[in-house]
Design a protein around this nucleic acid. Structure first.
Length: 223
DNA sequence: CGGCCGATCAGCT
DNA sequence: GCTGATCGGCCGA
């Protein structure tokens, strides 16, 4: 590993490379579950956690995608870039969301990182959230995750393969709970794309943003 | 320009 | 379950 990477603790062995991202959105959404996401702040502090929830946005034919029907603007330009770039957008006048661009360059596919279970830098994440929040809630939901990790449009276009500010690593260790699928969250009227099972999550993980009805446990209370 | 809407969240009923 | 907050982006006139 390079001197610079060594200085900030990047492990080239575990870090996900370009090849990992150069696949379709469904495959990547499934593969990212259980991976470690690392964020290093400007001051050098390291925040990290395990990805527990993702959503796939397939391409120009996916009417729920920002790039539906080939829509291409300044805002979503990154979606058309190389696999492994971070596509960060601002929405609802107050929230940011982070995606991983995948597929072939020129084809706008991406995976939205919806939730993460914090495993490092909890105090800094709590401070960034600016409110009293339980640890497992710090990165529960895409807006909360970006707030906790201080991710905004400044990181749009960041190359996760080479970045010293944001990247993914393979994570050894157990994954508590089976990976299940559900429809994506928060979509408008986009026909069949509203109900397509393009969301992946670890069933039973407390950092998942919303428990899908389809996998609610029999006898379990409402949530 | 004007107007509408959103890959959300928190707080209340 | 419902709704207000809050504003950049986008599209149509």
């Amino acid at each position: 590993m390079s001197q610079r990477d060594h200085a900030i603790g990047v492990s080239d062995k575990r870090r996900l490379g370009r090849r990992f991202f150069a696949t379709d959105a469904e495959t990547l959404a499934a593969k990212l579950i259980g991976m470690k996401l690392v964020r290093v702040l400007a001051g050098g502090s390291r925040l990290e956690g395990i990805v527990v929830e993702t959503e796939a946005y397939l391409g120009v034919h996916d009417l729920a995608s920002h790039a539906a029907k080939g829509r291409r603007t300044l805002r979503n330009e990154t979606m058309y870039g190389r696999p492994g770039l971070a596509y960060v957008y601002f929405t609802y006048g107050m929230h940011h969301c982070v995606n991983v661009v995948c597929g072939a360059e020129g084809e706008p596919a991406a995976v939205l990182v919806r939730a993460m279970e914090p495993i490092g830098g909890v105090e800094l994440m709590t401070r960034a959230r600016g409110r009293d929040v339980a640890t497992h809630e710090l990165c529960r939901g895409p807006g909360n995750l970006c707030r906790a990790l201080s991710i905004d449009r400044d990181l749009d276009g960041e190359d996760l393969v080479t970045s010293t500010r944001l990247w993914f690593e393979r994570c050894k260790g157990k994954q508590a709970g089976p990976v299940v699928r559900s429809p994506r969250i928060g979509l408008g009227a986009v026909g069949k794309w509203r109900s397509a099972p393009l969301r992946w999550l670890i069933d039973g993980n407390p950092s998942v943003s919303r428990v899908p009805k389809a996998v609610r446990r029999p006898g379990g209370g409402s949530r």
